[in-house]
Nucleic acid binder design. Structure first.
Lengths: 223, 223
DNA sequence: TAAAGTATTTTTGTATCCACGTATTATCAA
DNA sequence: TTGATAATACGTGGATACAAAAATACTTTA
């Protein structure tokens, strides 16, 4: 079974890895807010290690766009402007569109059932108000991407999901529009079933672009 | 004038930045070969700084996919398998396709002339055998991307160009197929002139995908 | 009150040290 | 010779203490 993204739950754990995971997790869950300053010393103490691995983790997080590193001014939690959020959704649309196109030929009946199972689980999470709707939603998209069998593509898409995750959570918490997401995603499955790769690609693109405006309202002005 | 990618030629230079630029440049030029081990001490001495900023630079380079960091085994120059190279070109095709689609409405006659100037400069570099044909080629693509006015999109595409740069150089050095690139790119400009965004997007996609197989022959087997 | 200068805090980088994993070499038995 | 095993060298990952530079905060003075 190909793993969906929230990737690499492996347990090798150098200190830097641990710091990276720890901070990333906090950011995904929205524990740190955009603009918050991350002080290496504090975080190091929190996890029980020295500054060095934490600072290294900062570099990676900055590469991921989760954090902004300004010379001599330390590490600040990144926030997205509305424009940036739209941009990410534009990028997601073509990337996940590509993933769908590539995945399509590999999807058999068994896989369709798995996708429908994931869709159902997502809906249940949505109804119960549990905010791991966001995680389920990622699993659904991640599953399709995984089927493309393109490691770098999967990685890039996954990284974008991490960046938007805090906003997805706010969106989910503040209103329950996500319920209508059921049909939205059912349409994607239907398109996959159609066997028309370019059609499915287009449907995925439209699906992703259509959610951007809804999210956009909840974006904090940021720096 | 919007800057083309080889981005950020700014001169703020923390030590980490310097290390990052230094190593990236060496990798782009192919001074280090895939599989080579990068020893922090050596590089630190080479640039005249301590290990720490070098180690931090490694993290970013690893995020960029230029280098592989394995726990307790240090830093090794990444190489691309044929599959990975194809994958990168697939990703480039949709990303740069998107950039073209977004850039199109902003291109005026002046900009077309600039693009033609860049194309000509690229050709001249190709004829003189100077290997900064690769740089000119990047400038051409970078210019179009810049017109999309999407910072994150530009950044991602730029990162991919950096990864494939060493292979582009090998390709260029070993044969002079790049000459035929003139028409290839002229077609892209023509498509931009057509005013049909989706057509131009498609043309750019095809252009990029068509170069992958030519490059693929020159890819080292890698790990 | 505004400007200038001083002090403090942070960030960044250096230098050193150590434990542990990996890789290499040397040793020894079959 | 060959293969397995032990000894060793090396590099990595990390800790810690310290120094320099920048940014921020705080006075003091005009």
């Amino acid at each position: 079974m190909p793993a969906a993204f929230p990737a690499e739950p492996q347990m090798s754990a150098t200190a830097e890895e641990e710091a990276y995971r720890h901070i990333q997790r906090a950011l995904r869950l929205g524990r740190y807010k955009p603009g918050d300053r991350l002080i290496p010393e504090e975080i190091a103490a929190e996890i029980g290690m020295s500054r060095m691995p934490v600072r290294e983790a900062f570099r990676r997080l900055a590469s991921d766009g989760l954090v902004v590193l300004r010379p001599n001014r330390g590490c600040v939690v990144a926030g997205l402007t509305v424009d940036e959020l739209y941009e990410i959704f534009e990028i997601r649309s073509v990337l996940e569109g590509l993933a769908v196109r590539l995945a399509m030929p590999r999807i058999d009946e068994e896989e369709f059932e798995e996708l429908e199972r994931l869709l159902e689980r997502m809906e249940r999470a949505g109804q119960s108000g549990s905010s791991d709707w966001v995680v389920r939603h990622q699993e659904f998209h991640g599953r399709i991407c995984a089927l493309s069998r393109r490691p770098k593509l999967i990685h890039q898409i996954s990284a974008l999901h991490v960046v938007i995750e805090p906003y997805m959570r706010i969106w989910f918490d503040d209103c329950d529009k996500p319920h209508s997401a059921r049909e939205e995603h059912a349409v994607v499955i239907a398109a996959l079933r159609s066997g028309d790769e370019l059609h499915a690609e287009k449907v995925m693109q439209d699906h992703i672009l259509s959610t951007a405006p809804m999210l956009a309202e909840f974006v904090s002005p940021s720096r």
